[in-house]
């Protein structure tokens, strides 16, 4: 299949599935339906965030001057973005096969896989992070196993490292990658792959040329979700990370709780918020070359 036919395939699929239900209510009713949510968002989200941004500009933007003066904050911001990107990519790589399995497997097995995805999702982040402490600590399960097997003589340093933070965060965020991808995959008509094999494509070729391109909206939605959630992580890096895996949320917490410098905490939060929004916008822009990706929100 060449590029043109791939594009026409995806636009055909979009026409089939897009834009019917949104038009079936008159605008007034639609507005009324979303009004409770809008009210909640304005009171509980937009107003506090606006106040936060306002607070960060006290003393003529002095907090921002301080932010630039020390290399610390830009350094931690860069680390935060790098850790989040790594975690998002890992979530995608590990999550896609699981999503595919959930979409393709027969019901009892698919349910079992779904349970393995959902039960961690329903468990508190705190508990999951502590579980990693139990596994990774010096006399923890992983080190014990490696020593018993004879691979190592001395316990390895696993906990309080960069790797531990990335591992635990990936584990916590994995369901947020799996679920959107699985939703997209499941809505794909099975006829498409069947048609591909009918035309002589091997299963691998059918996957690469049909399933994968059509699942990209879910892939991007899931990866973006993981990335944005990872940017604000606080508990997990605090529990399993060492001093060198400092993230923005840690600094914001210090300023809010320890130093009580709320204007500066607000400036740090505004910086993180702005950078997240810019990254999301750039990400969407970069993908907008293909209309099939427009459902990345």
């Amino acid at each position: 299949m060449n590029a043109v036919s791939r594009r026409s395939l995806s636009s055909w699929w979009l026409r089939l599935h897009h834009g019917r239900s949104a038009k079936s209510y008159p605008p007034a009713v639609s507005l009324l339906l979303v009004s409770p949510l809008m009210a909640l968002l304005i009171v509980g989200f937009l107003y506090p965030v606006a106040r936060l941004v306002q607070l960060s500009f006290t003393n003529g933007g002095e907090p921002y001057a301080r932010l630039v003066r020390s290399g610390l904050y830009v350094g931690v911001l860069t680390d935060t973005i790098l850790i989040s990107a790594t975690v998002a990519i890992l979530c995608l790589v590990l999550g896609y096969p699981v999503a595919l399995a959930m979409a393709r497997l027969r019901r009892p097995v698919a349910l079992l896989v779904a349970a393995c995805v959902f039960i961690p999702l329903w468990t508190s982040v705190l508990i999951r992070s502590y579980a990693w402490v139990v596994l990774l600590q010096r006399n923890g399960l992983v080190n014990d196993l490696l020593i018993t097997v004879g691979l190592i003589d001395m316990p390895l340093r696993l906990l309080y490292t960069h790797g531990a933070v990335i591992l635990a965060m990936t584990h916590v965020l994995l369901p947020f990658a799996i679920l959107p991808i699985q939703a997209t995959l499941r809505s794909l008509p099975a006829d498409l792959t069947r048609a591909a094999s009918n035309l002589g494509a091997t299963p691998v070729r059918a996957f690469l040329l049909v399933t994968l391109p059509l699942s990209l909206p879910g892939v991007f939605a899931g990866t973006l979700l993981c990335f944005v959630l990872a940017l604000g992580f606080y508990i997990t890096p605090a529990l399993v990370g060492g001093p060198n895996s400092m993230m923005m949320a840690t600094l914001i917490g210090q300023q809010t709780l320890v130093v009580l410098d709320w204007p500066f905490a607000a400036a740090l939060s505004t910086l993180l918020l702005t950078v997240s929004l810019v990254l999301v916008a750039v990400f969407r822009r970069a993908l907008a070359y293909n209309k099939g990706f427009s459902s990345v929100h």
């Binding site: 290399g71 610390l72 400092m246 320890v258 130093v259």
Partner: peptide, 14 residues
């Protein structure tokens, strides 16, 4: 000196 100390500490420890 708490805010400066914390900033210097963060810078050193990471």
């Amino acid at each position: 000196n708490a805010p400066t100390l914390l900033e210097q500490w963060n810078d050193w420890v990471r």
